[in-house]
Design a binder for these strands. Structure first.
Length: 264
DNA sequence: ATGCCTGCGGTTCGCAGA
């Protein structure tokens, strides 16, 4: 079972990159962010043709999230419960994973999330980011109480630690690396989640985003902001995790690359 | 110190992203 997250920075601009990557990586479940289109404009048929079920929560021009799954899935929420939001940043679905040899299967709850950027900080946009994170933390606490297999995957727009950024000093005043952002992210993690990638290595220098500007990719001036947070029961089954950074070197890439984990 | 680049909407520039 491979579960992945990928901020595509416009699904219509990235459908061919996504299709190539789906065929190569063969993930079972994928959370997408920054669709930048309404549900009607989402290239559903192209993705279904590759063997995926698709649920979307789109928005014109900005934001937009989706979940793809090789297995049947049912949407539980479009929008974060308990958080009034005009912006399409959250989708949650129950995926029905079949058992082996016809045995009874098991559900995995999948939450796809696109966090607000939060700049400039401080300010109203930063307040919105913290409010969103608080609301997600409250919802996550309720979900953890169910003791299910659960993943919250997406673009968190938060750099967890110094080892997750090439030039920490350049990000000190940025909402992605603000102490308050990192503290709020730790409160979420400390409910009992496992950062799938971080659980597999202590090494720094692994990034999921490189800015389009100033040759950031060529200089490996990156940050790790796309995360897969696993509930205890799902973390028990974790085998490996990875970041498919080769996509960043393709023509017309997203500024993010896919992050994935493999479980039993 | 500032902008660099990309996508979108809708026109040839402004906004947002991170």
């Amino acid at each position: 079972m491979i579960i992945a997250t990928f901020n595509v920075n416009s699904i219509r601009q990235r459908i061919e990159h996504l299709a190539r990557w789906l065929q190569a990586r063969q993930p079972d479940i994928v959370c997408l962010q920054e669709l930048k289109c309404m549900d009607e404009a989402f290239p559903r048929e192209e993705i279904e043709a590759l063997g995926y079920n698709v649920v979307t929560h789109g928005q014109k021009t900005f934001n937009g999230v989706a979940i793809l799954s090789k297995y049947p899935l049912e949407v539980e929420h479009r929008g974060l419960p308990g958080f009034e939001d005009e912006q399409a940043r959250y989708i949650e679905a129950a995926v029905s994973v079949p058992g082996e040899d016809g045995a009874a299967g098991e559900a995995i709850r999948v939450c796809g999330v696109y966090f607000p950027n939060g700049n400039p900080a401080p300010g109203p946009k930063f307040d919105y980011k913290l409010a969103f994170l608080d609301a997600l933390t409250r919802h996550a606490r309720n979900l953890l109480a169910l003791e299910e297999k659960l993943v919250i995957a997406g673009d968190y727009n938060i750099i967890p630690e110094e080892r997750d950024v090439k030039f920490p000093d350049a990000w000190r005043g940025d909402a992605l690396f603000f102490p308050e952002s990192r503290a709020a992210y730790r409160r979420l993690l400390n409910l009992g989640f496992t950062d799938a990638f971080r659980a597999t290595t202590d090494a720094g220098g692994h990034y999921s985003f490189w800015d389009y500007q100033a040759g950031a990719w060529q200089r490996d001036n990156g940050i790790r902001i796309d995360h897969l947070l696993l509930s205890p029961r799902l973390a028990d089954t974790l085998i490996e995790a990875g970041i498919d950074k080769a996509l960043r070197a393709e023509e017309k890439p997203s500024d993010h690359v896919p992050v994935w984990c493999r479980t039993r």
